[in-house]
Design a protein around this nucleic acid. Structure first.
Lengths: 266, 266
DNA sequence: GCCCCTGCGTTTACGGCGTAAACAATCCCG
DNA sequence: CGGGATTGTTTACGCCGTAAACGCAGGGGC
């Protein structure tokens, strides 16, 4: 039972990614460089070969250009990575094709938080190798908490909640709880995604001696190994998100019934 | 109000780190290399200069040795980083001086999860620059979820919960929920820690023009900026941990009252 | 028509990185 | 005392990010 998925119903956040290289010109590579082309190329390259494989020279080559050409449009590698993060996060705001995930037309704050959560999760699953970057790049301001990395996003978050009756303190407590939840769940989900594939492309070593880690001294692990390797990420995400929303709703109602006290997210 | 801490009571997980370089010999650097010395040196170096600054050459220099000498004891840089993670995590099991955090003598599973959570949090706060490594290094097995990175730890987790009456499925659901919670909270906590210092050691640029990000188009951010920059990490950690434990207890009781059904972590 | 300026990509070069391989020095044990 | 084993150093290679100088085409003013 390798690489098992839990249920038969498909994961709605797991959408096919196509957006191949543009066919605007018609010739193989007619147009010149430009910052947006570079960032797009970087995202594609990371998706294809992993974050560690991205170097200026290789990115240049993948765009048909020498490494130094990139420096006309990007100050350096670090800024390039910041640009990649920004670009990927801003995908949230484009009202795409199908899109029940467009966060700016929502019905109430719960619906908003659901859309936002699934929107970020969709990004994480579409670009699993980029997500650790989203999680770990030093934020612009100390209160910009990954994975909600744009001022615009935080503003919209706080606006939605305060409009719905949350006090400032409660909205911010909710912001912190929500970002922690998203970061933990999604980072672990993409980590496990990466672990699955990285185990497959490591067929080296003698296949006899160490074909399995020795679990004899770990009886609980041994007994539950088949359960541990099940992937229930989608259901767990949903459950934890609903639990968080319930908790926030409780806070909101308590604060509304007896306002005048200090809010405290319990 | 820069760098504000929430309360007056001190954070119990925030302990002073001293353990300076050993004074075993008496001369400046009498003894030779050895894997453990190298790993200790690496942790110290990362704590002092950050993860990105750690190179084989510099680590060697900090140990009074050429870079290539390290390769007698460590296969390469990647394995060195794995060793650093392993070493830091195993700090959990040493029964130190004061230590109400020793996880192996606990009273019930709730106490165990509290000890474990605070133990990991203590590690994160003691080595904030190492923690992202703990979070993001590819795990040995797909079901080893950061930040609980050792087989021994996962075994002890599952053993404690199943002994307490959790079914295998419930214990594993708890393991996943718990690791997500820890990872999200602690990674964000150390990220903010790093962000605070990294803003301070960037005094460059004209201090007049861009002394503050322009927030005029973000009214909610502007209004709540003072709240956003408050650090309530300790209280939030406690609240979220308690909430998780309540949730798990609910699951446990429901399963015990009407067992025979499928467990589902709600 | 010519000329030069300007924008864009290339070439070259430098120091630092991880690490393979050859080498030197010291120690230990017969 | 002598020779292998052990441990650290030296040298070297290819790749990295990037500074700086260099071609080179296109186009507007004369």
């Amino acid at each position: 039972m390798p690489t098992a998925t839990s249920d038969d119903d498909r994961d709605p956040d797991l959408v096919a990614v196509h957006e191949g290289t543009d066919v605007a010109g018609g010739l193989t590579r007619p147009v010149g460089l430009d910052r947006d082309r570079i960032l797009r190329g970087a995202v594609d390259y990371i998706d294809a070969h992993g974050l560690a494989a991205l170097t200026m020279r290789r990115l240049g080559a993948s765009l048909g250009v020498e490494a130094m050409a990139l420096y006309r449009y990007v100050p350096g590698r670090e800024d390039l990575l910041d640009g990649v993060v920004e670009r990927v996060i801003e995908t949230l705001f484009v009202k795409d094709d199908g899109d029940d995930l467009y966060i700016e037309e929502h019905n109430g704050w719960q619906d908003y938080l659901m859309r936002l959560g699934h929107g970020i999760r969709r990004i994480a699953l579409a670009h699993p190798s980029v997500f650790p970057l989203i999680a770990s790049r030093p934020p612009a301001a100390p209160w910009v908490r990954p994975p909600l990395r744009s001022l615009r996003l935080v503003e919209s978050f706080l606006g939605t909640l305060t409009e719905a009756g949350f006090s400032d303190q409660a909205a911010i407590a909710a912001y912190r709880a929500y970002s922690s939840f998203l970061l933990g769940h999604l980072l672990l989900e993409v980590t496990q995604l990466g672990a699955q594939v990285s185990l497959l492309d490591q067929p080296e070593g003698d296949p006899e001696a160490q074909r399995k880690t020795d679990l004899t001294q770990f009886p609980n692990l041994q007994r539950t190994e088949h359960l541990l390797s099940l992937d229930k990420s989608a259901a767990e995400f949903e459950d934890a998100l609903e639990n968080l929303l319930d908790r926030l709703e409780r806070v909101l109602r308590e604060a509304q019934s007896s306002d005048g006290e200090v809010d405290d997210l319990a």
